[in-house]
Design a protein around this nucleic acid. Sequence first.
DNA 1: ATGAAAGCGCTAACAA
DNA 2: TTGTTAGCGCTTTCAT
Lengths: 338, 338
Amino acid sequence: MNESHPTIRDVARLAGVSHQTVSRVINNNEKVKPETRKKVEAAINRLDYKPNAIARSMARGKTRTLACIAPNLTDYTFASIIEGAEQEARNRGYFILSSSAADADSFADLIIELVGYRRIDGLIVINPYVDKRYEHIPDNFPTIFVGDDSNNKNVGWVALDDEAAGKLAVQYLIDLGHREILCIKGIETDACTQDRTKGYCKALEEAQIKCDDRLIMTGDWTATSGYQDIMNALEEKISFSAVFAQNDRMAIGAIRALRDFGYQVPDDYSVIGFDDMPLASYFDPPLTTIHQDINRIGQEAALMLITKINQPEQKTNSHRLPVHLIERKSTAPFNDRR
Amino acid sequence: MNESHPTIRDVARLAGVSHQTVSRVINNNEKVKPETRKKVEAAINRLDYKPNAIARSMARGKTRTLACIAPNLTDYTFASIIEGAEQEARNRGYFILSSSAADADSFADLIIELVGYRRIDGLIVINPYVDKRYEHIPDNFPTIFVGDDSNNKNVGWVALDDEAAGKLAVQYLIDLGHREILCIKGIETDACTQDRTKGYCKALEEAQIKCDDRLIMTGDWTATSGYQDIMNALEEKISFSAVFAQNDRMAIGAIRALRDFGYQVPDDYSVIGFDDMPLASYFDPPLTTIHQDINRIGQEAALMLITKINQPEQKTNSHRLPVHLIERKSTAPFNDRR
DNA sequence: ATGAAAGCGCTAACAA
DNA sequence: TTGTTAGCGCTTTCAT
């Protein structure tokens, strides 16, 4: 069990110097005579000495650990953000504790263990507005939100340019000749849902189309919710020729519903998604969608956070990342075959 | 910046006891007079004292942190395992550092930082056989593999019963009357690929069907590889009526290839997948597949690891988890319409 | 049941 | 340039 790793003092003894000199060597401090450095390095190699990270954290008062909290870890979007954050963090010598918090209570618990017990130096919160969980974050603790600052907490954030993205998608459908465009929203409280919907309305307005509330349905990001929304619309004989689903999963659900009703996509109805998830090009039909560089969001968040930790006085520049549209086969020019 | 959190001594001073008594209280040590305990608890509440996790790690020589390393964090399978591990770990007071290591070199780096610098108490390695990365793990460090022990390192592991699963899938196709069953393998070096293929052969043997090497194609888990494999088979006019794809993504690719060639699934060809990924029921046609409780694997791995950390002498019981088949619409009885 | 002293392995401040 | 002395905030003996 106790293989008793060598400590800084063991190295010092072997090299015939003080432990402080060893500390200087491992911290690349200038003020060490080259000779001494050599001796110390030899001793380090000889003993295969590795500094203990916990002891360093203790002495420095910094853990070099960040946490990433998301509603879950499996959703492709969340996982990509975490992956991006992890890469950026690693490159800068930080590690990421990733945790999922299904609800506000478990989020609050997590915050106590992570922030209260001082396990981490900073925090990335993915979807901070879900069940108002952001309220549980202590003020002044270095934090970055993934998802924007609409609720006006004074922390930094990164997000997609969701409004522009929503507008882009809908404009594309309008350009194809569609006028009655149904919108399937994501979870109401997610900031991006609101922004994408804003973009949807804006595109319609600019094309002088009235924004009809009956065409705006609420989903919850699952395929099933997209399916249900379209089923309902069809049963209630709501008139539309195209669908803007605020994520790909709901788009898939929508397509299935349309098909179950005997319609063809894109011949009878056009459907555009959002995310460009990995299998989007393999769906039937291949999905026209909004592509986002989701990995990049995680990278940005980590970078912003690390900067904030090391330069607390400096203002954090929150910002939005651009998206682009990927044309595939689930959309087509309007026609009246329905 | 320096809000100077209260320490155990601040609490002690306020409560009029020694800091050691405070330590006893926060560690639920029996030997504290109820009165004293009350006083101390009052002081703790008053100061909102929270013990510093790093200092505890330091004093105890345990970090209460585990690491989970996978080839990436976004693959649904990996993400689910990590999520399961994280849940189990949290329930037992541990945290998970999740990291991705694309190749053996970055894996080796990670091991040094995590294990060498003693940042973690234990390690979960997902897909340890990829590029022989498992070789970089120091002996005797508490480790659990997700994926089996075929290469005979003496560590514990959890895995699916892949051989039985492969057999189950193929037997199902045989029962539908198929005799020429094409197999699309995953990455060769993954233990599960070998086991699933073994199951494939076994099912054929038991049905007295010769196991034809020309029907076994190698993929790399991506949809594209499944697509390519089937394209090649079709172009070379290899005769088959059903496909066993070793994961759902390759199954999707296979279906698209078949369709691009003008065939219908399942009318002309049956396709069975593996994983039952979230959207499997929304594919077209809904995918018949092998369902695995992948989250559970992560839970098991974390539990085994924590047990091993706390009872190092006790032997770890590696084991396999069962699967079951989900019948959907991508498979049908054999017919000769092709 | 409680306290005093030592130590976990490092860094930081000061002296030499 | 190097060494000495103190911590960092806890837990772990060992007394009392």
